[in-house]
Design a protein around this nucleic acid. Structure first.
Length: 479
RNA sequence: GGCCCGUUGGUCAAGCGGUUAAGACUCCGCCCUUUCACGGCGGCAUCACGGGUUCGAGUCCCGUACGGGUCACCA
């Protein structure tokens, strides 16, 4: 049974890189009928942010990455909040001392600083010098009895090498001599992150560890820990970071690194999830659009790439547009509704019709307001808009056209889109003009904009007869 | 700096010793068309560099360059 986990620190926002890691962990578990576990790593009290855990729950629920075990849903391997597990690490640390994989260290800050300074001067890599690992049992007991503060350090082998296989990066070998005797249990009795992680993953029976590639170089230490305990080593899947450009990671500072940022900008959650899935993972076929279900089906660790991927908002935008266009008209309208708020206030405007025009014309919902602002009020436009080379229109023939259009439309008693269209086409024929020479000036007169969703019959119909005629008169007056 | 990892168009990427080096986004052109979009068709543009190995290298090996990661009683 495959068990994967997502183990975020509650920072108050969901970085898209983290969300991607969660997604991959979720997909791997679902693909294999395994379990997806949520564990909150909140041991750093200084970083604690109020309500931050809720952001995690909310994002996972919203994106559909439903966890099988976690603080809010329970499970057999709890507690799932690390701060509630703080009591359980000490016994494992002591067990490791018994087994010879770790030792008490009584060095104080002064000595440590001194050692480090000396190493810097002689250009040695900074590393604990192993002083306390050479203490005899008697010396240790004496210091313990005397109440000297202590930590527990991992005892690294001084020779040989450690090799592990990562499912993305392949086989990686590290010289043991470069490994430092890191602190496992701090002087306050709390575990360090590295230690807690190994203990928790083992206790929660995690089989596949999916995490950022920044942990690649500490993985040998983890494995030595597993070995010292005599535990099974999990499979590793390290993922390269999501970048802003070739040398910078996507960061919160830039305001476009978190899931919430994109939702606020008007992107659809499906599109965001779909896009980040593709950032660093390539499915087998040529398909690019996936529902979560389809991603589960298609997911394969072998498609995860080793190199960092630059986040291309442009492509996300395109994908978002694809999602918008494939929605049903009604669904689109429901999503669009909030964006009309305060923009289209005239109750005579049927926003259902507006939505129908808009659906193929926006890539994200926040594009809507600027496209429809003219419905409420005709902008103060420049008559230059009537000059359109391709439509063969200029100010003069536009004025003539508008003057002809006015009585034509005035005569329509049944104001429907089709009637408007048909009458206008009849006028085109009568005038011996090109379609555009009649329709284009009308569109400009009605919208006051160089581009508008829908053509003149659409706009005329939505605006209503009175407003249409009044805007045409305004146009004639301008010309 | 030591160690680890990476490098195919502007971006995401396929490729697994023999391909005209896929596909997508962007950009450009054309078509459709009552604007703008959508849609359709077409186009520009890539194997970081230098050495090997091989009949043959984007694919294997070694260097170089560039980029990332990591070296805490942070997570």
């Amino acid at each position: 049974m495959i068990r994967t986990r997502f183990a975020p620190s509650p920072t108050g926002y969901m970085h898209v890189g983290n969300l991607r890691t969660a997604l991959y962990a979720y997909l791997l578990a679902r693909k294999n009928n395994g379990k997806f576990i949520l564990r909150i790593e909140d041991t750093d009290q200084e970083r604690y942010v109020d309500g931050a855990v809720d952001v995690i729950y909310k994002t996972l629920a919203e994106t559909g990455l439903v966890h099988d075990e976690g603080p809010d849903v329970g499970g057999d391997y709890g507690p799932y909040i690390q701060s509630e597990r703080r009591g359980m690490y000490k016994e494992y640390a002591l067990e490791l001392v018994e087994k010879g994989g770790a030792y008490y260290c009584f060095c104080d800050k002064e000595r440590l600083d001194d050692v480090r300074r000396r190493q810097e001067l002689s250009k040695q890599p900074p590393k604990y010098d192993g002083h306390c690992s050479r203490l005899s049992k008697e010396e240790v007991d004496a210091k313990l009895a005397a109440g000297v503060p202590w930590v527990i350090r991992q005892k690294m082998p001084h020779s040989g090498e450690t090799t592990f296989v990562d499912e993305v990066f392949g086989s990686i070998t590290t010289e043991n001599s470069v490994l430092d005797d890191n602190v496992l249990l701090k002087s306050d009795g709390m575990p360090t992150y590295n230690f807690a992680n190994v203990i928790d993953d083992h206790l929660m029976k995690i089989t596949h560890i999916i995490r950022g590639s920044e942990y690649l170089s500490s993985t040998p230490k983890y494995n030595l820990l597993y070995e010292a305990f005599g535990w099974d080593i999990p499979a590793y899947i390290h993922c390269s970071p999501v970048m802003k450009d070739s040398s910078r990671k996507l960061s919160k500072r830039d305001g476009d690194a978190s899931y919430e940022d994109f939702i606020e900008k008007g992107y659809l959650k499906e599109a965001v999830l779909n896009y980040i899935a593709l950032l660093g993972w390539s499915p087998k076929g040529e398909r690019e659009k996936f529902t979560l279900e389809e991603m589960i089906e298609a997911f394969d660790v072998s498609g995860i790439s080793k190199s960092p991927a630059i986040f291309d908002e442009n492509k996300l935008l395109w994908l978002n547009g694809e999602y918008l266009r494939e929605m049903s008209a009604d669904e689109f309208h429901q999503k669009a509704l909030p964006y009309y708020e305060g923009v289209i206030t005239n109750p005579n405007i049927d926003t259902t019709l507006v939505s129908a025009l808009l659906q193929k014309r926006c890539e994200k919902l926040s594009d809507i307001p600027e496209q429809v602002d003219f419905f409420d009020r005709l902008p103060d436009y420049d008559t230059e808009l009537y000059v359109h080379k391709k439509m063969k229109t200029d100010r003069e023939n536009s004025k003539v056209a508008l003057e002809q259009i006015l009585p034509t439309l005035e005569a329509i008693s049944d104001w429907t889109r089709d009637n408007i269209h048909d009458e206008l086409m009849r006028l085109v024929e009568k005038m011996g003009a090109k379609n555009g020479q009649v329709l284009s000036p009308l569109r400009v007169a009605l919208s006051g904009k160089p581009a508008s969703p829908g053509g003149s019959p659409d706009l005329a119909y939505i605006l209503g007869k009175d407003e249409t005629l009044s805007r045409i008169r305004a146009g004639v007056a301008k010309l």
